[in-house]
Design a protein around this nucleic acid. Sequence first.
DNA 1: CGCTCATTTGACGCATGTCAACGCGCGTGG
DNA 2: CCACGCGCGTTGACATGCGTCAAATGAGCG
Lengths: 249, 249
Amino acid sequence: MASAAAQMDVRPVMRIVPRGGLCDQCEVRGTAACAVLDDHDLSRLEAIATHKEYEAGQTVFDEGDDPRHMFNVTSGMIRLFKLLPNGRRQIVGFVFPGDMLGLATHGTYTCSAEAIGSVTVCRFPREKLIVLLDEFPHLQGRLLDMAADELKQAQDQMLLLGRKSPMEKVASFLLRLRGEHDQCNENGDRLDLAMGRGDIADYLGLTIETVSRTFTKLRNENVIALEGAHHVIITDEDALEDLADAMGD
Amino acid sequence: MASAAAQMDVRPVMRIVPRGGLCDQCEVRGTAACAVLDDHDLSRLEAIATHKEYEAGQTVFDEGDDPRHMFNVTSGMIRLFKLLPNGRRQIVGFVFPGDMLGLATHGTYTCSAEAIGSVTVCRFPREKLIVLLDEFPHLQGRLLDMAADELKQAQDQMLLLGRKSPMEKVASFLLRLRGEHDQCNENGDRLDLAMGRGDIADYLGLTIETVSRTFTKLRNENVIALEGAHHVIITDEDALEDLADAMGD
DNA sequence: CGCTCATTTGACGCATGTCAACGCGCGTGG
DNA sequence: CCACGCGCGTTGACATGCGTCAAATGAGCG
């Protein structure tokens, strides 16, 4: 069944060389960084890849660690965060299935990474990958583009953290999730939040209580509906977009 | 082979080919991205560079613009910022002399850039630069490293914006400036702030008034001394570092 | 020397953090 | 299958830190 997908216009899934590889069956084959590779390159990449699983809450790496690996998340989600001495935490990003992790790392890991739920990754030893990079110049360009995208997201997040109200933060967060959701899950306007309220709070620079109150307010104003704490249905998208960066006030 | 400058371990300033070039006299020759280039590469780079000046407050480019150029700031400082519809502003970074600007740009510029004071830049047409990039693979690697550094800074800033108190923000800001200051100016522990209180406020996610009050507080506690609003002398560095991320509450 | 704009200082109120109690869902074990 | 307990989420009461508004002071520049 992996074969019949060739009619998609955007990114034709090419046949892989017949070596019983895993990449061709990979669920994120079409979206991950590997998507720019042709079969031959991919087989080279696959040769150095190993797979690993993490369970909920498990540490993938810590800030300051020597970056031995680069990761491609094949299922589940990861939170990236930094800690202050007294325990305060700032989540600097969530990693979705298909996203690369640790590619733009110069020196040591700049933040810690934990599995939110169960996570499976495809792992590349950094040294070997760097050797391959010299062989695939277009892959290096792709990495630069991906770093640029991360930087853009980081800038958006700085705007959010520094200048948005709690309501604007939560609304922006939901809309951004809906954007990702195309590429990773579900249908309709139903979002499933893998992360808990604490993660959301630490991502948006708020407290758990404020996040919870804001969700409640959105529900009471019929902008969203909640099916349990981890499922959100956007019922009034226009209103949500207005709330995400309110003109007036 | 180009020169006998090999005795310096870090970054030998090599003689440039005799073409009356400008790069060899460039004040940021030793620190800018160009520092990894040897004479031959540099002369190629120089061939596509043009110079430009901006006066205080002038726009270098706007968010959303097509990224025609990459910049190397040779003197003065630039603020990078994003705006919200109602006029709120978040400064996402300051560009120091020697820093590159617009290198990790994928698509359009992700933020706007304005000269803080008088600024001179070295400007490279993007298209031509991309062609050169294919010829200098080590330059591309360098760009990726620089993007990684920017990303690290962005993550630090997210931590600051989301989880630090005004006092911690201002203290962190001063310490970070002191870090940069090695590479750009002055001596002793005297910092000169090119930017005004409004810029600092919009960088730290505060109001002008809170920034001003925090400076005053630092002065009253003899942690810093102020010589006019734009000159800060760090008189108690240890205290400042303690304030930058206070352990206990 | 005086104007103008940036910065500082003050007074005040509100939004959001803090502390605390409650409820709910889920997994576990009886 | 039900009872229990634990962790997460919600809701409430309260306090305060920071933003808002306003006025005074000071610095830079013509």
